[in-house]
Structure formats: C-alpha cells, structure tokens
Write a protein that binds this DNA or RNA. Structure first.
Lengths: 291, 291
DNA sequence: TATCTAGTATCGTATTTTAATACAAGTTCG
DNA sequence: CGAACTTGTATTAAAATACGATACTAGATA
C-alpha cells in the first residue's frame, strides 16, 4: 500500500529510481573514474588544478580522488613539479578486458592469416553502444604504427565495421542505434541521414560486407565483415582499411572484401562452433554458392 | 582546544593522517575499482554473489558498485543469466596509459628493429613498485602468442628486465625493493635471498645486461638491458626471452645480449636526447661511490 | 619584498553511502 | 508438487562518509 503518494502525482516523473538517479548509484566512483579521462595523448602530465578543470570537479574533490588513486598506485606524482601521470598499473584495468574476452584470443590466428594474405593492417572491432571499439589489430609491414589504436572508440554509423555489425542486427535495433548516434559529417562524404544509412545496410546484407570510402578518415577505404556469436547475433567485425593512394575501390572489393568475409566467417565458426554460416549471410558471394 | 583528547593519548600513533587513513582517501573509489579485479581469464562472467565474494564486499556494496559501473558502461549484463562481464569500454582506461606514455611510442621503432634482427619476441617493460609491467611487445614469427601479455605485472626480482632496472638504481633503493618483494621460488632455480640477488646486480652493472635462466618460467632464458631517462635514472628495460629448446646460454649472451643493449641504448638516447651513454653503463660503480 | 597562484591540511556539516531487511523470482530437494 | 533454499532487486532509517569552504604553506611573479 505505501506506493505513489500525493505530491508525486503532480510531477511528470513519479519518483525516478532508475539509472544514475537510483539510490544504488555511487557518485564517488563516477567522479573517481573521471580522473582517468582527464589524461590523454595531449595531456600526459597534469597538475591538480588542471585535473579539476578537465573533469569539472572542484579543487577539493580533485584533491581527494587524485589522492586516492595515487595511494592505490594508479597515479604517479612528480614531487618537484607536482605533475600527476598515469601509472602502468592502469594497464591492468584495460587488459583485464582482453583477458576476459574469448573473442580476441580465438580470432587472433585468423587475423594474422588475413594480415599476411592481404598485406594490410587488419582490425577486430566490437560494438559498444553507438560506438565501435578496436579490440585487436594486426599491423602490416606498410605502416609501423604504434598500437595506441586499441581501445579507441569511434562512431559506428560512419565506419565499415560499425555498419557490418548493424546491418545484421534486427532492423529496429539498428535504426534505434543510428537514431541515437550523434551523426556528424566528418569528411563531407560522410552519410549522416538515417534513411540513406538504412539503405546502405541493405546493401551490406546483400553483399555480406560493408564498404566505406572517406566517410571518417579522408583518403581511406575500409571494408568490413560481421562476426556472429553462437546465437547468430552480430557481435564484432573484421575490418581492413587501406589508403586510396595505394588502392582503388574495385581492387578493394575484389581482393580485400573476400578476405574480410572469409576471416569473419572462420572466426564465427571458431566462436560458436557452427560449421555453417548464419542464414543472413547466405545470399552473399562466399565459397559455397548460395541458394 | 578541541584536539587530541584523553583516549588518544594512550595510543602510540597520535592521529594518523597519512596514506589511506587520510581523510582525503575516498573508500568508495577503492571499492569500486575492486570490482574490475574480480574479473580475469578464469572468471570472465560473474554473478553478483560471485563478485561480492571475489572482492570481499558484502552483497549490498557489490550491488551498488556493480550497478554504478553498469550504468557507466564499464560492465555488461546478460539479462537472462544475470552474469556480468567487462565491457569494451574498460579498454579506454588501460590504453589511456599507453597514450600518455611517451616511452612506448619512441621505443617502438627500435623494438621492431630488434625483433627483426633477433628473430625473437622483444618486450619493453617498466618498473612499478616491486613489479615489472609489460608495456610493449613485438612478437616474432616463432610464437603466435596473443598479446594479452601487455599490462601483466610480474615480480622484478626474478626477471631479467627487473634486474636490469634495479641494478642501475641507487644501491639502497634496489635493496629496499628486493627486501619488500615477496620472494618466492617459482622454479627451484629462482634466486630468492637478498644477498645473492645484490651480487647478481653487481654482475649486471659490470656486463651491462641481466640474464635469467629458468628463474620464473621453466625452459626459458631471458636477457635484458636498462633504459635511462633524461635524468639518467633506469626507468625501463628491453628484454628478449627465448626457449632453451632453441637457444643455448652462450648463444644468448653472444647474439641477443648485444641486441638488447644496443636497443636499450638507442631508446635511452631517443628518450633523453643524450648521444652518449649514461656513465653508469660504462662499467660499474656510480659517480659518487658510497662509503 | 609584496602579491599572486597552486598545493596541502583542517573541520563542521549534511549529503551519501551504508547495510539490514523485505520482496520477488527462480532452483533444488524432500 | 510445494517447501526451503539461493540469488537478484528494491527500500529504508541511521550515521558514517564524503563534502567543500577555508585556512595554511610554499613557490612563482613582478
């Protein structure tokens, strides 16, 4: 009987007990994690005031959370300059994920093979909300890039890997994701309207791979194919990105798209134990001719 | 006037206002971070009760912190089984470190070169307390290992990389680190007593590299050389580990030790801008010899 | 030397977390 | 098949905890 009372009736939202307004939500933890986000490649060493500014915390809060992380070994401090830096211990946090993710270790051999046969950098990405996250990467000999790319989150709607995953989700789910994405035009060639995006997803379903030309990075062509879990849900994508300086669109479709598709299929099989493809993928080109 | 009262006088420690007993220490943040540590390769999906048990938190606390991390996107939850998993977003945390660490990106080209000429896996490690942390790794063609090794913390006292760093620290500091290490014999060949360890550090100083044979991993030989920062402090190490099945001790010393040393020197130069070696590396004793 | 600015320490207060408990939903066992 | 678990979720009263204003210290600036 003690439910919604008098006053609550006047308000549009009755009580609000969900999400971060729940009494279960611990604000201190959120604030503490914000400290980590203050650091990036352009802000490698920060002083207390800078941390406070970057996180939006006041001086006292920044002091307390910084102190706590320092005591726990996640932060180092230069006693002279008072600059704080992230300590190597934070790597433990991030790599804990890779250790818990069965996908990465199962996929790695296939990614290596794909990198070898394509002679290009091959990425493994997962969907996280409206973003795509790089969880593994096998660099080619062409670019001697440092693997700081891992962990990077980029918007799914304008990446080949994102579209490869979205295309094989239930239609409403994909639409919902697209709609709540903040769709920015990065290059001028970026497709930002929902309807055209949904159309391109149809194409992805038809061909079995997604293709993006300069939609996020200028001068870059990217192909991707979806990976399915045991429940045949698209959970990740194999993606190969190449510079237009070295590749034409048709060469990518002819040479790289099949590699992406076959690698993704192999990983799907390894992941779920299914020897056959998910039905959705059938129409495409692969080895066993469809229908 | 309202200071130390009656009862306090009886206690040996007056007030205690340091470390995690400081009023600045936010316990909630510590507890929240414990949640992450509950997950590893053998505990990939956990239920609430299991998290509570693994972290030592009670049910309510586990519920609150889990809920918070879930809302923030660091945790995923299977609505059916109620299993929690780490979300890819945690990668952002860990890789934030690599992006802030200038060492990694500067070292990478040299590590690649070393991997090429040695045809073995080359690691870059940093010291964090009594442990060594793997911050970069260039795999050879021999072992197709997944790079879950990154971020791993291993005890410095029994690793070549750890000894390479400790050997060039001020003597008391090295001794202190060794003494507070929990020195376990992993293989039977592990040196655990402080005095012999200090003796081996002398040898490292003399030769410029550290060599460990089966001290942590059975069947493995490991060489390492120290990297110095602009202040000529040893901050990291280049390390090459190889199986005894393919390598003899003398071959490692003859072929790999020079590569480790030269790579480490090149990185030291790149790091601090010094064209010459730190004097410490020359043969042994530090500039001001102590008593 | 005076005046900043930034880091550190203190402390009363009330906001937040806490932990006990009640409730719901699903499992196991007699 | 229902009783007695176990486990997840929601609610609360109580107080411990985190808060943030402020004072203090030290170094930089002018």
């Amino acid at each position: 009987m003690p439910q919604n009372h008098n006053i609550a009736a006047a308000l549009p939202a009755p009580v609000r007990r969900t999400g971060r307004d729940s009494p279960l939500f611990v604000g201190s933890l959120e604030k503490g994690l914000k400290i980590f986000q203050a650091f990036d490649d352009t802000h490698r060493a920060l002083r207390l005031t800078e941390i406070a500014h970057a996180t939006g915390l006041d001086k006292s809060a920044a002091q307390r959370f910084t102190h706590t992380l320092y005591e726990l070994g996640y932060l180092r401090k230069d006693p002279k300059t008072k600059h704080y830096r992230l300590a190597p211990k934070v790597l433990e946090l991030g790599f804990a994920y890779l250790r818990t993710d069965t996908l990465v270790e199962r996929a790695m051999p296939y990614l290596l093979e794909a990198a070898k046969s394509s002679e290009e950098t091959v990425n493994l990405t997962e969907l996280d909300g409206t973003n795509v996250v790089y969880v593994a990467r096998v660099p080619s000999r062409h670019q001697v890039t440092v693997d700081v790319v891992l962990g990077t989150q980029l918007p799914a709607y304008c990446l080949a890997s994102g579209r490869a995953i979205l295309a094989f989700q239930p239609a409403e789910q994909a639409r919902a994701t697209l709609e709540r994405s903040e769709r920015v035009s990065y290059t001028g060639r970026t497709v930002t309207a929902v309807e055209p995006l949904l159309t391109s997803l149809n194409e992805v379903r038809r061909t079995g791979y997604a293709l993006c030309v300069e939609e996020y990075t200028p001068g870059e062509i990217s192909v991707a194919a979806p990976i399915f879990d045991f429940a045949r849900q698209p959970i990740a994508a194999v993606n190969i990105s190449v510079p237009m300086a070295r590749w034409t669109l048709s060469a990518v479709e002819r040479r790289l798209a099949p590699i992406a598709i076959e690698t993704a299929q192999a990983i799907s099989r390894a992941e779920g134990g299914h020897a056959t493809l998910p039905p959705l993928l059938r129409n495409a080109p692969p080895k066993h001719r469809a229908r």
